[in-house]
Design a protein around this nucleic acid. Structure first.
Lengths: 150, 150
DNA sequence: GGAGGAAATGCGATGTTATAACATGGCCGC
DNA sequence: GCGGCCATGTTATAACATCGCATTTCCTCC
């Protein structure tokens, strides 16, 4: 589980560039939080994140983490998984369409996928009732292959 | 929004019967909570529910409500909406297939629908990644027609 | 009817997640 | 320098959910 630091740096640098493009800045704190998210193999809880970030910033408090998370989500660099209060880094460079998040309730694993067929039938169904998709994130509770095997 | 008490009683009685069938019992507290859920036009929060139930049971505490909710959800009589910490009564007599929950983030309105096309394409997508749908509840954040108009 | 046991409830405390409110610090253009 | 702006620090608290244990209720078997 030791990250390839070269890859990580590259990812963070790309994130920084994309923020800058939008007039936002990926500050040190935000970058650290994003790095922690990327290192986590699964969804991670805000307070676990807090604990981890205290290793480098002893004075971090809940708002420190939540503000960084809000920023990252706003910038499309991270996602919030509502049901389980989990946060994950976005593994996609860019979202052309809404994503489906398969959240495993056993292990907190999050799989992000874009499936045009599902999304288009979803749109049709929504349109039929006059609704409009609000968030590009659709969350689905599904047992992952590993947990299903166990 | 004043409920038709005759309908309400009928709904509750049916719920009670279906519990009994499964060897569970819809006690007074659970019945009251279910009634409150049915009266609510939208998703309702646990602590709002608590406040309401204190009108008739002054001594109710958080566990009172959460226990009743857990029971109702277990029995398929209610659903939890994860993102917003909302609870809603299930308006369907019986679920033959997973339901989609359209949750409006503006007004907390919850629309429950069963759409075979979406569900089947969803299943196909899940199968492709080796996942298995865990919960019969798929939650989607979507602006409702009323809020979209406003 | 009474003993035993399972399920439900009462009750207080606690754990967990998230935000409010206000102060401070640093940067930049003027 | 000073005024505005964004980010951060700091303290407190709001909002959501569960634990643990005592007590009651209700059922069932004798």
């Amino acid at each position: 589980m030791i990250p390839d630091s070269c890859d990580e740096t590259a990812v963070l640098d790309r994130a920084e560039a994309s923020c800058r493009q939008r007039g936002a800045s990926l500050t040190a704190i935000r970058r650290e939080v994003l790095a922690l998210l990327h290192r986590a193999p699964k969804g991670i809880k805000a307070y676990d994140l807090l604990e981890q970030i205290r290793h480098t910033r002893g004075n971090a408090s809940p708002p420190t983490v939540y503000r960084a998370l809000d920023f990252l989500i706003e910038q499309g660099l991270a996602h919030r998984i509502g049901r389980m209060n989990l946060f994950v880094a976005c593994r996609h460079g860019k979202h052309s369409a809404p994503s489906l998040f398969l959240v495993c309730p056993k292990c907190n694993g999050v799989t992000e996928l874009e499936d045009a067929a599902v999304v288009s039938s979803l749109y049709a169904s929504l349109a039929a009732t006059g609704h409009r998709l609000d968030s590009p994130e659709v969350e689905i509770s599904a047992i992952c292959p590993q947990c299903a095997a166990a």
